[in-house]
Write a protein that binds this DNA or RNA. Structure first.
Length: 838
RNA sequence: GCCGGGGUGGCGAAACGGUAGACGCAGGGGACUUAAAAUCCCCCGGGCGCAAGCCCAUGCGGGUUCGAUUCCCGCCCCCGGCACCA
């Protein structure tokens, strides 16, 4: 064919054509047969987006492209790959936006979803649009409600009044996880504490298992570490300190002991029971239930004043670690069972009600916070641990938190602190305090809190519960699901502490499913995190309306083989998903307890080193870029930017490289009549197999940037000096390109004479180590570790051969002359190093 | 403060403990062209030198090693997360 027949690379044309073609052929869509009887199934999952009004942003595209590259690669390796996409459209984010623009979310979401879908098709992901989910659709949230009911019936969902985080701006309760540094994650308003009856999932019952299973997951260490930290397991002891009666010194009877022990004890959690003798005072959280009981009449006023002061303080102020310690004496005392001493009970806001028992034994000698507090209020500080340079009475200028031996602790003196822990615990177990309880026992404490899932908002799935005066909270029967979220024009939250649904009487008024009497629906909706905690179970069964997830289909496809998403969800979303999966497993609905076999977090794209944000005006708008350079070039550019799992910095001009890379491939393959048909030259064949090896390994490991570099290198070789490429040189290149640039790969594949889609068959080129082997290698010749020359030898040459050649190198000889040879280090095919002294 | 991840040319970045800077962007020079684009070839960390070559250089300071961007110890800085968690 002549030059005039060359058509220039036109991404728009190629990409439009193949997107239509894929749709027409249903290449990405799963038929029922494929879903039921896949060949080597591979569930390739990525975190579904919240469909914002702005459309896909570069971060989304980066995440999805990286996942799609992996999925397409798996497809070329012969797997049946299931790659679904959906929309996480419930939640405060959508609702707040709807409020802002004054449009009902039910009217807003479909447009956003349509726009996202259009953009997602445009970037060439092989998403299965037959199995998509939208969390706001009744056929989805029906099953979200069903899951709630399963947990409710199993006793894992409970309603309790609890101090909750209240955002005075969003006018809603927030989960602990939605409070970032004391501020609402959505609007940065300081969060307040309120006591409201809430629905909780008892995730804490699963804390230990959620922790233990982490060891066996193929997840990155950082993600697992983040989960471990969030679960926050601490090993220690619970210790009960008897509260003393304060009739002491009141005169009167004069008989009996002055400090009568009451049938009351303050229970604390500590990780350092070995320092028990150093507990010179107690501290309760200001909201601790025992405060009233231990406060003496004289201290009543100051205690009340302090508590109300703390109560009105917002969480930011409250949780500041560097602020001065405050607190007040209750007038009450405990007995330190080990020392027998009477020690004062204080309240202070540095002790948090949410952690442990909400009370501590203060050991100022060996805890920095207690030390600071003791200094502030003149409380006694005692050394009970002595480091190597200390004696039992070396004064403490600051808290000593290091290792050492126990001192000033009676029978425990002399023990190493670690050995003292079990010794003290054992001793405590033998002592008894009020009401016949032992004085303490070993205890594991978790930082993890129960998951508060109710929201006093409109835009979420109604919690399927009916309250009845006679029967209490009753589950809505499963065959009455879904409890439809009614269309309410006034969905603005208010300060009442209840959902806008509580204003819709005709909706909440109902009958009790149990007794038929008057009932009232729960008006709270559930947390968005519940929607996303099970969507991966729904995808394969998305077309079924009889079950949440079909047992057979689920067995075939789950657990998810590979899950890719952002690190911002490395804790909450993943933890909740694991919990829901584990609970459903225990209830007999699933035969696995971990949902995601492999998880990888992608990095984030910055621009000029900064996070992209509308306020900074540095947001990359994808559509015009795709228009100009094509989705294929954009995909390659994003994947080439830096290591996928670390992210990278976006530079506008740099897309030029990937674009010309694609154009050059195009020109090398087309027109195919010009391709040479002779057998591979050995040099090219070697490079080809080295490239296959590298690209295979690296795409598998999500190391896309270097895999693309390898393809570029190979192409450069094919085109050196304006050389014409051969058919057998370019075919494997086109296949390896396919995960990154699927449209162009299809087009070229077809031009090469294939009638089936490139993704239809197991096409990935086979690697032959024999063919990748270099015949000759260049060895580095060093003298004392410094490079002084190189020699070219046959691969695998022995030391003698290299040594002889190396000595003859002029520059090497210069350094060896007059020096004494001490040693020769020889690394086959790499280097030879002469170690000499002058 | 604690837990992660980083710090390498003008820029994005590569380097099983083994020739630091692959691949790409930007820049410079050349070939082809009436011209431009595209393409192809060459140069491109710093200093010294006509050259051969030499010295310096992967945040800083030590250490291990024949040899360290890589391993160890101690710091500094940037990014992300958690944070009075007892």
């Amino acid at each position: 064919m002549s030059r005039e027949d060359r058509r220039p690379y036109s991404p728009a044309q190629v990409e439009t054509r193949w997107q239509e073609e894929w749709e027409r052929r249903g290449t990405n869509l799963f038929s029922h047969e494929q879903l039921e009887a896949p060949h080597d199934p591979y569930y390739n999952l990525m975190m579904f987006p919240y469909p914002s009004a702005e459309g896909l942003h570069v971060g989304n595209i980066y995440a999805f492209t990286g996942a799609d590259v992996h999925g397409r690669y798996r497809r070329l390796r012969g797997h049946t790959v299931f790659e679904p996409m959906g929309f996480d459209a419930f939640g405060i984010h959508s609702e707040n936006f709807a409020l802002k623009v004054g449009t009902h979310p039910m009217d807003l979401i479909p447009g956003n979803v349509a726009n996202f879908t259009r953009q997602l098709r445009r970037i060439g992901g092989m998403f299965d649009w037959n199995h998509t989910v939208d969390t706001t659709q009744p056929d989805y949230y029906r099953w979200t409600q069903w899951i709630f009911l399963q947990l409710f019936k199993a006793g894992l969902a409970e309603r309790k009044e609890a101090p909750v985080n209240w955002c005075p701006s969003c006018l809603t309760v927030l989960a602990n996880e939605q409070v970032i540094g004391g501020l609402c994650e959505r609007c940065d308003t300081p969060v307040e504490q309120r006591r409201i009856a809430q629905w909780f999932f008892q995730i804490t019952k699963y804390a230990q298992r959620l922790l233990d299973n982490l060891d066996d997951l193929d997840w990155s260490d950082t993600t697992r570490k983040a989960q471990r930290n969030w679960i926050g397991r601490s090993l220690g002891a619970r210790i009960r300190f008897p509260v003393l009666s304060e009739t002491a010194g009141q005169g009167g009877s004069g008989a009996g002991t002055t400090d009568e022990e009451r049938s009351l004890a303050v229970e604390v959690f500590t990780t350092r029971p070995d320092t028990l003798a150093g507990a010179t005072y107690m501290v309760l959280a200001p909201e601790h239930p025992l405060v009233d009981a231990v406060t003496t009449p004289e201290q009543r006023d100051s205690v009340d004043r302090y508590r109300s002061q703390v109560g009105t303080m917002d969480l930011v102020a409250r949780k500041k670690t560097d602020k001065a310690k405050t607190g007040v004496f209750t007038g009450g005392h405990c007995r330190n069972l080990l020392t027998g001493e009477k020690i004062p009970i204080w309240i202070a806001d540095y002790v948090l009600m949410e952690y442990g028992t909400g009370a501590i034994m203060a050991v100022p000698g060996h805890d920095e916070r207690d030390f600071e507090f003791a200094r502030e209020f003149g409380l006694p500080i005692r050394r009970v641990v002595a480091g190597p340079d200390h004696s039992a009475d070396t004064p403490l200028e600051e808290a000593y938190t290091g290792a050492g031996r126990i001192v000033n602790s009676g029978t425990f003196d002399g023990l190493d602190w670690e050995a003292a822990i079990p010794a003290v615990v054992e001793w405590l177990e033998g002592q008894s305090v009020a009401a016949g309880k032992s004085a303490g026992e070993g205890h594991v404490n978790f930082r993890l809190r129960d998951w508060c899932i109710s929201r006093q908002r409109y835009w979420g799935p109604p919690i399927p519960i009916v309250y009845c005066d006679d029967c209490g909270p009753v589950a809505v029967p499963e065959d009455e699901l879904p409890v439809i979220l009614p269309r309410v024009d006034d969905f603005k939250p208010d300060d009442s502490g209840v959902s806008p649904l509580a204003r819709v009487e005709e909706w909440y008024r109902t009958t009790c499913p149990e007794c038929g009497g008057p009932g009232r629906r729960e008006t709270d909706v559930s947390d968005t995190f519940l929607d996303s905690a099970w969507y991966f179970l729904r995808y394969p069964s998305a077309q079924r309306d009889d079950v949440a997830f079909h047992p057979e289909t689920t067995r075939t496809w789950l657990p998810v083989h590979c899950y890719i998403g952002g690190n911002e969800h490395a804790v909450l979303h993943l933890l909740y998903s694991r919990f829901i999966t584990m609970a459903l497993h225990d209830l007999g609905h699933l035969d696995f307890e971990e949902p995601f076999t492999r998880f990888r977090a992608h990095g984030h794209i910055t621009r000029e080193g900064a996070k992209m944000s509308k306020s900074k005006g540095n947001v990359v708008v994808p559509d015009p870029i795709i228009e100009e350079f094509g989705a294929d070039a954009f995909r390659i550019y994003l994947m080439f930017l830096g290591p996928y799992q670390e992210g990278g910095d976006y530079r506008d001009a740099a897309i030029q490289g990937p674009y010309s890379f694609l154009s050059r491939i195009w020109d090398s393959v087309l027109p195919v009549e010009d391709l040479r048909n002779d057998p591979l030259e050995p040099e090219v064949e070697r490079k080809l197999h080295q490239t296959i090896r590298q690209v295979t390994e690296q795409v598998d490991q999500l190391q896309y940037n270097t895999a693309i570099a390898a393809l570029m290198e190979y192409l450069n070789m094919l085109r050196t000096g304006g050389r014409t490429a051969g058919r057998s040189e370019v075919e494997p290149l086109v296949v390896m390109l396919a995960p990154f640039a699927p449209h162009m790969a299809e087009e070229l594949w077809e031009a090469l004479g294939h009638s089936e889609s490139i993704f239809q068959v197991e096409n990935w080129p086979a690697f032959d180590p024999e063919k990748a082997r270099e015949s000759s290698v260049e060895l580095a010749i060093q003298v004392n570790g410094k490079l002084r020359g190189t020699v070219e030898v046959e691969a695998g040459s022995p030391e003698e051969v290299v040594l002889a050649l190396a000595r003859n190198e002029e520059n090497v000889a210069r350094y060896l002359e007059g020096a004494t040879l001490r040693r020769v280090i020889f690394v086959k095919d790499r280097l030879l190093n002469f170690v000499v002294t002058a």
